[in-house]
């Protein structure tokens, strides 16, 4: 299968001031030299803890955040330098489902207008066509036609997220970025939304970039996974490889930290505790960013930053000792 999205050396940095008004300017590299690919029709999950840069990377891919450097190729075209009409065309192909269904819907608009808005601003379709599309979308995400005229506050959390999904589907995008689409929902409702997303993917051949910190959800949804730590991808592998044979010590610690109901799994796994907190993102250590908390770190890790290396079978790890 071909790659729909190919991100190369993407870097996003923010300017921060240290030490008052005349303090020295410093840069915080939220996403630092990150590369990953997503195959057409598949799901790549980006996992990591808060502050690891996963959402920033996704925003940069959607051109909602300016990148400092790198390439984001969609269907072979680099979309980072695009502007004006070309960018408007690209926006039709990349849509976003946001985390919080309570704050990402306009409270003054009716549900049908919220779903229609991307069509109004990005396409040149006629009014009748647009209405037909919106009605079809409501059915596709499991909402009733009479609910089209309601306002956002009249829906439950799960229904609101369905509206958010319908809105993302409106322009028939090729890539949908789901930024923690279920983390604000109750567990029983989560299952409904996850099943819906998988069904839509199968029916419409969608490609997902799925951002999440919940590894249970990630293993259920994804075909491949990129693990981020402090702005870097530390491991990138297929689903079975990553969960069955995690190679980076951070991934191992992350997987072992997830509480599980499976008794055999709980018995066989020892929790790998990583002490302390992540380093200061403005003053990053020289070597591996995980070295300070890593249970197997050696002198080499402190001085030399490991590169993301492919093992020949598509399992990529950034660790000197993997």
């Amino acid at each position: 299968m071909t790659d729909l999205l190919n991100v190369e050396n993407l870097t996003v940095r923010f300017e921060v001031k240290r030490g008052g008004m005349f303090g020295k300017k410093a840069h915080l590299y939220a996403v630092d030299d990150v590369s990953f690919t997503v195959k057409r029709g598949e799901t790549l999950a980006i996992v990591g803890e808060s502050g690891s840069g996963k959402t920033t990377a996704a925003l940069a891919v959607a051109r909602l955040q300016d990148a400092y450097k790198g390439r984001v190729e969609l269907d072979g075209d680099d979309i980072l330098p695009m502007e004006g009409e070309a960018l408007r065309q690209v926006r039709q192909k990349v849509q976003f489902i946001f985390q919080d269904p309570y704050s990402s819907l306009n409270p003054r608009k009716r549900a049908q207008d919220i779903v229609q808005e991307p069509l109004d601003s990005l396409s040149d379709k006629s009014k009748a066509e647009k209405e037909k599309i919106v009605a079809g979308l409501f059915e596709a995400v499991g909402l009733r036609p009479e609910q089209m005229r309601l306002f956002a506050h009249q829906f439950s959390g799960g229904q609101r997220q369905r509206i958010g999904i319908a809105r993302a589907l409106a322009t028939q995008p090729e890539l949908i970025i789901c930024d923690e689409p279920v983390s604000a929902l109750d567990v029983a409702v989560q299952a409904q939304i996850l099943n819906l997303l998988r069904k839509l993917q199968k029916d419409m051949g969608l490609t997902f970039l799925f951002i999440s910190h919940d590894l249970g959800v990630v293993q259920h949804m994804s075909d491949a996974i990129a693990v981020m730590y402090m702005g870097k991808v530390v491991e990138h592998a297929s689903r079975l490889d990553l969960f069955g044979n995690p190679k980076h010590p951070y991934t191992q610690a992350l997987l072992s930290a997830v509480p599980t109901v499976d008794r055999t799994k709980r018995a066989e796994q020892k929790r790998i505790l990583i002490p302390g907190d992540p380093p200061d993102p403005v003053n990053l250590p020289k070597g591996c960013r995980f070295a300070g908390r890593c249970p197997v770190a050696q002198d080499k890790c402190l001085g030399e930053e490991p590169a993301l290396v492919d093992d020949g079978k598509g399992h990529r790890v950034a660790c000197h000792f993997a």
Binding site: L215, G216, V217, F243
Partner: peptide
Amino acid sequence: GLISCVPHIVSDM
């Protein structure tokens, strides 16, 4: 429902 509606990480994936 509460147990089976959540995707869990299991040993035999």
